[in-house]
Amino acid sequence: MSKQVEKPEWARIAEAFEASGQTQREFALARGVRLSTLQSWVYRHRRSAPSRGEPV
């Protein structure tokens, strides 16, 4: 059974990936997370972030 990851934790991991300059595969291997899990977190993080050019 896998542990449930809270939003602040997966958001930090997604942000770290974005800043890393690595591919998702490289980052997932280095962090010991499944590639599909990282992809899901990055997708959710990108969807939750306000896109550039939109008024805040």
Rank of each mutant, 00 (worst) to 15 (best):
S2N: 11
V5G: 01
E6W: 05
S20V: 08
L35F: 10
Q4P: 02
A16E: 15
V42Y: 00
Q39N: 11
E9L: 11
G32S: 06
E6N: 10
S40M: 10
S40N: 14
Q39E: 08
A11T: 10
A14Q: 02
L38C: 06
I13S: 02
W41E: 00
L29C: 05
R47N: 07
Q22V: 01
G32M: 05
T37W: 10
F17T: 01
P55S: 09
R44Y: 07
R31N: 11
S51P: 06
R46I: 03
A28E: 01
E15R: 14
E54R: 12
E15T: 12
G32F: 02
R12A: 15
V33F: 14
L29S: 09
V5C: 07
G32E: 06
E26L: 01
R44D: 10
Q22S: 09
A19L: 11
A19H: 14
E9P: 01
P55A: 14
E15N: 11
A28V: 09
G21M: 03
F27S: 02
E9R: 12
A28Y: 02
L29T: 04
A28Q: 03
G32H: 07
P55H: 02
T37D: 02
S20A: 07
E26D: 13
R25A: 02
G32L: 03
E15P: 00
A19Q: 15
A16G: 13
A19W: 04
A49R: 15
P55K: 02
S36F: 04
Q4Y: 13
G21T: 13
M1D: 07
R31P: 01
L35E: 12
M1N: 06
S36V: 07
S48Q: 14
V5Y: 14
R31H: 12
G53R: 04
G32A: 10
R47Y: 02
V42T: 05
S2G: 06
A30E: 15
